[in-house]
Write a protein that binds this DNA or RNA. Structure first.
Length: 520
DNA sequence: AAGAATGAAAC
DNA sequence: GTTTCATTCTT
């Protein structure tokens, strides 16, 4: 039996629990599927069978066991049924405002505390009975009601428990853009060099989750009505496994692109974690450079800043090859257009190598926000044969040399042209590149400005983005997309719209469907 | 500076 | 298997 409480849109308050009604699994219907979680006192919710198809939209559990169920939002007048096709309508931030607990959780659990899945917090374990030399014979005392150990981290109790992914939960927050991570991972090498200069070190490329978290950070903050990034992290961490495969694959591909572009920007980079990371836990020592980085534009500055020091033994020039499912070599073009990087770097960096032409460095996603005109009404995939290229899931995403120039696809000029804002900062090499094939964005603003809206057009609606990600049945096809933003699409109440690929996990099949659709 | 999250990469 | 570090910014 599932128990919980309905918070019918009432703003949580310290007395919230008195406003809540009990509900049961049967009352909630198939949507009322509670997800097991590890936070605090509502672990008794666990082990409910998830509906295979329908996410439990709109239900949120607070660590105190209360639940915000999408029954009816009395503030906003939304009827939210148990039908899970209903999109979450927690417009009122108060709806999700974390509950400030004023009453302790069930007394039986005293000592139980919220814990992170990763943390090894032993706080909840019984206090060890220590025998010391000064132990005196003592009267056996009745078991004391142990005081709650300081409420551990108050933050933990203030982070919501979600049962639907952020891409859906925040879909209505259209005024808050989802960060265009596609543009971010394709930022050019000189931008990366400047970042490294500024930081005094070369940072690691973000992984898929970091990209995801970053993309949704603002929306998550808004949704949670909290500016606390620990909460953002927790919610993101909850949401990540809830995201449909399409979304996760999208960010995994972004991570591949990020790694690849990162490596091209910093050919000699190798992750060298600081081994002797003693008590002062997080003393960041700098990542090393390899000799090949001597030619890197930002090397001198690093040296001058003295922020980086080379460690002996770190100068082997072997590339760390990830165990990524995507072959990174296949990200690169074959044939005569190969980059100097590739020509010179079959497996190791060449000392003194300068930045190769950046257009060879940057993998241009075939789907770029700037391709998407806000006024485009229809949605279509374009089949583009790219003879002479290796195809892989990654190349399906990346527009390598030969891919259609984004400007050919984008509607004329109601979108900030990438690079307009910042070409002056690019070195001539990059400028030349910019006038040619050019990356998906060119200046600083390009990945955080108006294109956001375009990105958000897809991810904002419900987070699905028609990337050709996984296995494609026909590798000789590349799909690019004019993804229009249309408010009505986003406003679809049932959470379904044209980009919703969640029902079809086979991308290739989807592509085929689109082929047929286009053909007709 | 710690802390939240997941994952890549290095041990 | 364990540890570091990517991001972010509040606490």
């Amino acid at each position: 039996m599932v128990t919980g409480t309905i918070n019918g849109g009432l703003p949580p308050s310290p007395q919230q629990s008195t406003h809540s009604e009990q509900f049961t699994q049967s009352q909630l219907g198939p949507c009322a599927i509670l997800q097991q979680h590890t936070y605090g006192h509502n672990e008794h919710f666990g082990n409910q069978v998830m509906h295979p198809e329908i996410p439990a939209h709109g239900m949120m559990f607070h660590p105190d066991g209360t639940a915000a169920f999408d029954g009816y939002d009395s503030f906003n007048g939304y009827h939210v049924s148990n039908n899970c096709s209903q999109m979450l309508t927690m417009h009122d931030p108060a709806f999700v405002r974390p509950v400030q607990m004023t009453t302790p959780p069930p007394a039986a659990d005293e000592g139980i505390m919220a814990r992170s899945e990763r943390s090894t917090a032993s706080l909840g374990s019984p206090l060890p009975i220590r025998k010391t030399v000064s132990d005196k014979p003592r009267v056996i005392r009745p078991p004391r009601t142990r005081r709650r150990p300081k409420q551990e981290k108050p933050d933990k109790s203030s982070s919501p428990v979600i049962s639907a992914p952020l891409s859906q939960l925040t879909a209505h927050l259209t005024h808050i853009p989802v960060k265009d991570m596609e543009a971010w991972v394709n930022r050019p090498a000189d931008v990366r060099h400047k970042e490294a200069q500024k930081a005094g070190r070369i940072g690691r490329p973000m992984n898929s989750f970091m990209l995801y978290r970053s993309a949704y950070a603002d929306r998550t903050k808004e949704w949670c009505s909290q500016n606390n990034h620990q909460v953002v992290s927790r919610v993101s961490g909850q949401s990540w496994p809830l995201e449909p495969p399409e979304v996760r694959e999208k960010f995994e591909l972004f991570a591949v692109l990020e790694r690849d572009n990162h490596q091209k920007a910093h050919p000699g980079y190798k992750f060298t974690p600081n081994k002797n990371q003693t008590p002062p836990k997080k003393k960041r020592f700098l990542e090393e450079r390899e000799p090949s980085d001597l030619g890197d534009p930002d090397y001198d500055l690093h040296s001058m800043q003295g922020r980086k020091r080379a460690r002996s033994g770190d100068c082997d020039s072997s590339y760390s090859r990830g165990s990524t499912p995507y072959d990174r070599d296949s990200l690169r073009p074959t044939g005569s257009n190969r980059s100097s990087w590739q020509m010179n770097n079959p497996g190791r960096p060449i000392a003194g190598i300068l930045s190769p032409p950046e257009h060879m460095h940057y993998l241009q996603p075939s789907v770029h926000p700037s391709m998407m005109g806000p006024n485009v009404e229809d949605v279509r995939f374009r089949k583009m044969g790219l003879p002479g290229f290796q195809y892989s899931p990654s190349t399906m995403l990346s527009g390598l040399p030969g891919a259609v120039h984004h400007e050919l696809l984008q509607p004329p000029s109601n979108v900030t042209t990438p690079g307009q804002s910042d070409d002056s900062q690019l070195d001539p090499q990059l400028l030349a590149f910019d006038n040619g094939i050019r990356g998906t964005e060119g200046g600083n603003g390009a990945y955080n400005c108006s294109q956001y809206t375009l990105w958000q057009a897809d991810s904002g609606a419900n987070g699905y983005f028609p990337l050709s990600t996984g296995v494609t049945s026909n590798p000789q096809q590349q799909y690019t997309v004019d993804a229009p933003y249309h408010p009505s699409v986003q406003a679809l109440p049932d959470g379904h719209e044209i980009w919703d690929l969640s029902h079809g996990s086979n991308i290739g099949e989807v592509g085929k469907d689109f082929d047929q659709w286009i053909d007709t």
